[in-house]
Amino acid sequence: MNTFAMDTDRIALAPAVRLAAVTKTYGRGPRAVRALDEVSASIPRGSFTAVMGPSGSGKSTFLHCAAGLDTPTSGTSHLGDTELTGLNETRLTQLRRSRVGFVFQAFNLVPALTVRQNIALPLRLAKQRLDPAWLEEILRRVGLTGRADHRPAELSGGQQQRVAIARALITRPDVVFGDEPTGALDTVTAKEILGLLRGCVDDTGQTVVMVTHDPVAASYADTVLYLADGRIAGRDDEPTAERVAERMTHLGAWS
């Protein structure tokens, strides 16, 4: 029996992200806040999932627990076949650097570094070898080939977010997590960035999980997960901006 083949099949079948009865409580005693309340969710590989909910619904905590940025109070979170809740901080840091990409509302670029150097930074931090051909491919995908030697101050906001996406992709991560990645961009530029994230899923099989408050942004996803009061309040596997906006209104997001 081929053990390697069995392991490969098991890993291939594992969801990209899985949360099982995850509860996250901040603080203690009467002032304790339960940000997540026994949340279970499974996100397939090669999919684009948006996470939405009213302010305080737990969507950012969901992302942080799924990405290994925060540890659940109870329950388990998995990245592929790896249980994150059993890892110490050193192992979590190593895992995040090699298997997870992050794109935030703030671009978080290093001003003194060029576009090329900013993109390669996660590999330097993880002490991994840079594949020049892959770097050039990433630059081409995000439309920055001609800007590779520029510094962040010489770029528009949309171009800086493209650098952030390229930086998230350079390690060939299992999952790219986005926390309001278009929140600081104008409407036209936001659509360009969302189209780029959509292309990462459709063209290369990347898995993207994005927290957003914008129904238009959510409409680019395959699935929208709705959170309310720290619990899963529903999902939509055929999201449109209109359907998402209506559902958010019912959740009390825009009362």
Rank of each mutant, 00 (worst) to 15 (best):
V209C: 08
R141S: 11
I170G: 02
A148C: 11
S156E: 05
I138H: 01
W134K: 08
P173R: 04
G199H: 12
P181V: 02
K191R: 15
G146T: 04
A148D: 07
T182W: 06
D179N: 03
W134G: 01
P132E: 12
P152E: 02
D214T: 02
A184F: 14
V211L: 11
L194Q: 04
L196K: 12
E192W: 06
V216M: 14
G205I: 05
I193T: 05
T212E: 06
A168H: 05
D149R: 14
P215N: 09
R162W: 14
I138K: 00
V211I: 10
G199N: 10
D131N: 11
T212Q: 10
L169V: 00
G178M: 06
R140E: 09
D174K: 07
T145E: 15
T207D: 02
H213D: 01
R172V: 06
V216H: 13
A153K: 13
G157A: 12
T182A: 03
Y220Q: 03
Q161I: 13
F177I: 04
V175M: 15
L144Q: 06
D149G: 10
K191W: 04
G183S: 07
R141T: 00
Q160F: 12
T145S: 15
S156W: 09
G157R: 05
V216T: 12
G195E: 05
A190F: 09
V188H: 14
T212Y: 14
E180Y: 08
A221C: 10
P215Y: 14
E154K: 11
H150D: 08
G178W: 08
A168T: 00
P132F: 15
R167P: 00
A166E: 01
D202I: 03
R167N: 01
L169A: 14
E137W: 12
A184K: 05
L155M: 13
I170V: 10
T189P: 02
T187A: 15
R140G: 07
R141M: 14
L197S: 07
T171A: 15
T204P: 00
G199T: 02
V216N: 05
G205K: 08
Y220D: 01
R198L: 13
L144V: 09
I193H: 06
G195H: 05
E154Q: 15
G183R: 09
P215L: 11
V216Q: 11
T187Y: 13
V211F: 09
D149F: 14
T189N: 04
V175G: 12
D214C: 04
A184T: 08
L155N: 07
T187P: 01
G195I: 03
P132S: 11
G143Y: 14
L185K: 08
D174E: 12
T212M: 13
V175D: 06
